[in-house]
Amino acid sequence: MLRLLTQMIRTGKKTEPAPILEPIDEVGENLRNAIHTLYGGRMLRIRHVDAGSTNGEEFEMTALGNAYYDMERFGLSFVASPRHADILTVSGPVTRNMEHALKTAYEMTPKPRIVIAVGDGAIDGGIWKDSYAIVGGVKDVIPVDAEIPGDPPSPLDLLKGFLNVLQGARK
C-alpha cells in the first residue's frame, strides 16, 4: 500500500498540465458557465443508453471520466438510473431489440430533460441505415434535442456537443 501511495504522490495530478493541443479547459469552462445559468443547478447528470452501437461511442464517453478529461470538474456526471438524469445520451442505431428500452428510458427521465444522439449511427443509422435490424436513428423513436456527429465523436467533440446543446437550450 505504501508503494501505491508513493506512486500516487510521485505521479501527481494528471489532469493538468497535460500537453494539450485541444482546448479542453476552455470548452469545459464555457460548459460550466452554461450549466450555471441553465438550471440554477450547477450539475448535469447523464444517463447513457446504448441502443445498439459498436461501443466506439462508449469508449469515448468512458474517456470523459478519466484523469485527462475529468468531466466531473465541469459538473457533469454519469448516473445509474434514468430517473436521476437530466440528459439522456443515446448511441448507435436503434435496434429493434432496444426500441422498447429506449422508449421506457425516455419516459422515465424527469423533465426538464435533454436527449442527445451521440455518433453517426444514432443520428440516422450510420452505416446500418435501412437495415432490417434497426428501427432507424434515435429521432425516429424519441424526440431528439441535439446531435453530436462523428464515428465515434472524440471526447472533446462530446464536450463541445454538450456545450452547444446547453447554449441552444439557454436561448
Binding site: S81, P82, R83, N97, M98, H100, A101, L102, T104, A105, E107, M108, P110, K111
Partner: peptide, 14 residues
C-alpha cells in the same frame, strides 16, 4: 412538483 406515473425501470426487459 409535477408527478408522472411510469412503469418501473426495467433496463428494457419488461
Amino acid at each position: 412538483v409535477p408527478v408522472r406515473i411510469t412503469d418501473t425501470w426495467d433496463c428494457g426487459q419488461p
